[in-house]
Design a protein around this nucleic acid. Structure first.
Lengths: 213, 213
DNA sequence: CGTACCTTTGACCATATGGTCAAAAGACGC
DNA sequence: GCGTCTTTTGACCATATGGTCAAAGGTACG
């Protein structure tokens, strides 16, 4: 039967995926997140992802055409979640509080979504082969917008003078450090939960940096 | 010929390596640093490392018994270099200046030795399978010592109150971010060199954080 | 030269891995 | 119960890759 006008391979190109298909794809992505974030792209194997998802390898490949396809869907799906907190920074809010809220939110994400954080770290470390374009367009324009907003706050004397873009980098690096370098942090800190201390420290750090003189 | 009393495999177990052997091993490590830092452990192949070093694969394996051996020697060889700047922090120096010097030194290393930085980042991201022990012993005791020193400075009123260990984490993350996340930084910043801006920003950040009230 | 050692390599091997395929097994509407 | 479509799988393939080996090519030194 000619399937619509689709250049299909496996899954029929009917617009709507069935519930079941969506669910299975979700299961696969979940398993893939586990494996990719722990082993990196090259280190991850389809067999392991399939096993983790409770499928056979050919069955996985029925839902996604290739290992790369899984990885890329995972990555692009996570990107928006990842940038959400920055996008949520409100130009009309109270400046210092907006920034502190962003810091807190970002640290919570590091704590609650370490796999996502590591997946990105991995991709960027490798030179971002899959998302360089997005970084240069979507990410850049988001940062441009928000750093402009920060600059306005500075000009209005609401927060102390800082380089707005490097401030954003600082927030990223200081928060993600606690997920990406988790083993190192824990090795140094012993077995206590690092996050309460981290939260308190970042609170101090950014308040001292940003509170107007 | 019975070779000494050695459980050798390839290279004879005579204590001193010849000049030539040292040189070749160095060449191999240099090539390995290139490849491992760019592709990660699993992504790197012996063929590529050998090619980069100008050797055949069996020849490389004559100098090192396995891929893992190359990686581990590389890693442990770099560790001390990597921790040097922290070790160099002088308890009897001028506190704020000692810390700022450490920050500057670390940022220079991020700029000048990005491969080393990425190699470590990679290893830690994977859960530090090869150096967890070292982190929990050598690294931990170095950090314990230096954070004690920082605490003394705080008690003496020389710098503002901060969590000493998280301060050290902050220095690591803020500086290494510029090498490990280089593509991202450059994607956002455009094509200018990020380092001058980074240096200025970190100067401001740590001075505001640490200057006593 | 000769000999004893060091170095290098082409050929080869076993395994891992991404991916294919045809056929079996379900689902579902009738 | 039947026919059609979707889903699943066992068997299989090509390639990549870490690693071995025996033999050839140096090298140093008497």
């Amino acid at each position: 039967m000619a399937r619509k006008l689709a250049e299909d391979k496996k899954i029929p190109e009917k617009r709507p995926l069935t519930r079941i298909q969506k669910a299975k794809r979700q299961t696969i992505l979940e398993a893939a997140l586990d494996v990719f974030s722990a082993e990196g792209f090259r280190g991850a194997t389809l067999d392991r992802i399939a096993a983790e998802a409770g499928l056979s390898k050919p069955n996985l490949l029925y839902y996604y055409p290739s290992k790369e396809a899984v990885f890329q869907e995972l990555l692009s799906g996570l990107l928006e979640t990842w940038l959400d907190p920055l996008a949520a920074m409100d130009p009309s809010g109270e400046p210092l509080e907006e920034i502190m809220a962003y810091v807190r939110r970002k640290l919570e994400m590091a704590r609650d979504y370490p796999r996502e954080s590591r997946l990105f770290a991995n991709e960027i470390l490798r030179g971002a082969p899959n998302i360089q374009g997005i970084l240069e367009t979507d990410l850049k324009s988001l940062v441009d917008e928000k750093s402009g907003c920060i600059r306005d706050w500075i000009a209005a004397g609401k927060i102390a003078e800082v380089d707005a873009v490097h401030l954003i980098f600082s927030i990223w690096s200081l928060t993600q450090h606690y997920s990406d370098f988790d083993v190192q942090v824990r090795a140094v800190l012993g077995h206590d939960d690092p996050y309460p201390g981290a939260a308190a420290h970042l609170e101090v750090l950014f308040k001292r940096l940003l509170t107007p003189a």
